[in-house]
Amino acid sequence: MFIINCPYCGERDQSEFSCGGEAHIERPKQPTELSDDQWAEYLFMRKNIKGIQFERWNHAHGCRKWFNVVRDTSNDKIHAVYKMGERPPLK
């Protein structure tokens, strides 16, 4: 049960949030130009890292805003939180 610092609301209990998986996977602008393999890469492939992972989180039971979180999946330490569209902290 970690605490997430929502960039809009501040620190809140994890139970208010839902995780949206790996961050920075952009929906292709022109999906119809893609091969099956390229589309599948976007659609299905996720890294699921043990260690520092960039993730999307939604303050579902709060402001309903989506934002990004840098979390170490091995110990749940959150290293950074930043808004959608902002540049990720150096990887």
Binding site: S18, G20, R27, N58, A60, R64, K65, W66, M84, G85
Partner: peptide
């Protein structure tokens, strides 16, 4: 609703 919000906020801001 949450799916639509997701697209609005993250893919089509």
């Amino acid at each position: 609703l949450s799916k639509l919000e997701d697209y609005l906020q993250t893919e089509w801001p």
